[in-house]
Computed example of a mutant assay.
Amino acid sequence: MPDLGKYADTVLSAYAISIAILIGLVALSVWQSRRARARLAEIEARRNAAKSR
């Protein structure tokens, strides 16, 4: 690891915040994807149930 001198706290905290934001964005994307898939499955199930009547 390079010697960051007096800026070490600032640089490392910026890296930590950036990584936390990236992890949050990935988690949010996965959560929204799962919700969208569940909604789509529900809509398709209703459509298929209505078709079979």
Results as ranks from 00 to 15, higher is better:
16 A>D: 08
5 G>A: 11
21 I>H: 15
22 L>P: 01
11 V>L: 13
29 S>Q: 06
9 D>K: 12
33 S>L: 08
41 A>R: 15
4 L>A: 02
42 E>Q: 14
37 R>T: 02
45 A>N: 13
51 K>H: 03
25 L>K: 05
29 S>T: 07
2 P>S: 07
30 V>L: 14
29 S>L: 08
30 V>T: 09
52 S>M: 04
51 K>S: 03
34 R>L: 10
20 A>G: 09
52 S>D: 02
15 Y>Q: 11
53 R>S: 05
23 I>Q: 03
46 R>N: 12
47 R>A: 09
52 S>K: 10
50 A>V: 00
51 K>D: 00
13 S>N: 11
24 G>C: 07
28 L>W: 15
11 V>R: 13
39 R>H: 11
47 R>I: 00
53 R>D: 03
43 I>P: 00
8 A>Y: 12
40 L>G: 06
49 A>Q: 14
43 I>N: 13
30 V>M: 09
43 I>M: 03
15 Y>K: 04
7 Y>Q: 10
9 D>T: 05
4 L>I: 02
15 Y>T: 06
8 A>H: 14
19 I>T: 10
34 R>T: 04
46 R>M: 09
1 M>S: 10
39 R>V: 00
51 K>A: 02
19 I>H: 08
19 I>R: 07
13 S>L: 05
1 M>T: 12
15 Y>H: 06
52 S>V: 04
3 D>W: 15
47 R>Q: 07
